[in-house]
Design a protein around this nucleic acid. Sequence first.
DNA 1: GAGCACTGC
Length: 712
Amino acid sequence: MWVPPKNPGSSSLPLADTIPSILRFGEGSGIPKLASATAPLGSAPRRAMLLAAPGPKRHTAPASSAGSSSGLDSQRRSLPIFQARGTLLGQLRSLDCAVLIGETGSGKTTQIPQYLYEGGIGRQGIVAVTQPRRVAAISLATRVSDEKKTELGKLVGYTVRFEDLTSEETKIKFLTDGMLLREAIGDPLMAKYSVVILDEAHERTIHTDVLFGVVKAAQKRRKELGKSPLKIIIMSATMDVDLFSQYFNGAPVLYLEGRQHPIQIFYAKQSQSDYLQAALVTVFQIHQEAPPPQDILVFLTGQEEIEAMTKTCRDIAKHLPDGCPQMVVMPLYASLPYSQQLRVFQTAPKGYRKVVLSTNIAETSITIAGIKYVVDTGMVKAKKYSPESGLEVLAVQRVSKAQAWQRAGRAGREDSGLCYRLYTEDEFEKFDKMTIPEIQRCNLAGVMLHLLALRIPNVLTFDFMSKPSPEALQAAVEQLALLGAVERKDDQLILTPLGRRMAAFPLEPKFSKTILMAPKFHCTEEILTIVSLLSVDSVLYNPPSRRDEVQAVRKKFISSEGDHITLLNIYRAFKNISGNREWCKENFVNSRNMMLVSDVRAQLRDICIKLSIPLESSRSDTGNIRRCLAHSLFMNTAELQADGTYATTDTHQLVAIHPSSVLFHCKPACVTYNELLHTNKCYMRDLCVVDADWLYDAAPEYFRRKLRAAKN
DNA sequence: GAGCACTGC
């Protein structure tokens, strides 16, 4: 058992030449919430009732017969939640809404849907359980169908984009929150569901936040219409209970004990001016003092930082003193090719310690077994949105307290763990309590379009749990008006027929509009490809170390007309050789994302057919494609100024061409772009060369208005 | 002149 340094200052680091300072840590005074199994929450609403479920404290390893039915049964019974089953069912039976707070490992997500089913609650309909991520929905459905000893897709099934494994028999259905939201367009009362469980509610994804309001409205409406009741259960891991409870008319909060292992927290004794340096020192300090099979997870902010740190760690690890364990260093971030991501799941060879340097992908999306130590820089790269400028700002910032606890929790998955925070306890106390929910950080055009499609009476006053600013709502509606999706009628905002068609696509409104414009320019096939490419992560893989190779190979696809046409060329080449992996590797194309593009394209094409949109190809005529883009992206344009810089056409914001664009070294007179992203500079991403005249043709009134505004 | 946190429909 590793013992925390009693006097950290005296522990000598054999790497003093490379790393000048030793970081001093003090043990946290406040007992971290995650380490406390009995009293997880300080401020429970008064109406709350406590469901203590003291399961076995000792972590029981999965039965060796895991998979066999008896093993699964005994595992189910050994879960902490099992002893609370009766009480829980009694409560849930009588409640319209409940908030369920369960620690990691309480088994709430797998067990509660089964308890409801077994207890005959809501048998007349389906029990829906939403998840923020696809993989979670799929693996939970698999697990629960195993426990019920049924075939996946029968009693228990799942629905995620591109995959629907449900049938007439399905009574317990796991789905992504986005999927349930999309289903609601055709069925705003959610008539086929008797219970909706919104899981991982504390993550506050934009979809969960919209669903809060949608299920609440559906429940109320069903009651008014005298239809069968809809039961709502909110499941969350952390402390936002007051907010959830208040929003759902004072719904009772039920607590479930979990099986999180204790985590010891250490804070930096002094404020750190350089968190990268501090992280480096801490990793090697731990490495020197801890026995080898215990792995380290370090939270950093981005790809570039992680790649640089990986290299530094590897260099230092080559020159470790005798007797020191060896080290394997692995980067982890979302744009890393899948095969490389998988490496973090391999156990390190004997005598080696695994050090994973990760973005916040390891906070929720990827769980790595065997992590004993977490090193938390306290920093995260996150997006903010300013509705006034329409600008998205991507910046490194402090994490919230909730996020810091989430990170710490990654050390206690299998056994007790330790978390080193590279900030002082005083600094921590100044962190925001919660991360600002996504719905308050985003462009809301898509959300507003969705709400309108759900026939919500007044979208500007929609009952959000955390209301976005009026400016953000107004900006979204204005954007929709510009796209021709909404109009005012008797002081009410309603969808135009075009808007209703736009809402049928699982896309940002401007991309839906682009598709709907395409028939006019006889290039729907090409636009479908381009929009698909733009709506998934980049298919281009750019390893910094092989930049020259990448450039040489990519040359053959590059179009002087911009990124859209270049991407189209790459997709066509990919399809011409019928899309094999080898080709992708040779051409630095991310094959996983490319496959996804194919799936997305097929889905969008199906929707076009349902909407009777003619599917034509413009073949080699790229002018029509660019005209089509100009007609739908006219509000996203910039013009070259006399001094060689670019200014946006509408607000004359100074912008630059993003270095990832094929037009980076070019100076076209007029371009449209997909989005502006503010990092060090205000960059335009994904550009297309257009003719200024086309823009005026596309929206004469818009530009006349802009011109008048400029004159005043 | 030089850069891209993370999900999801």
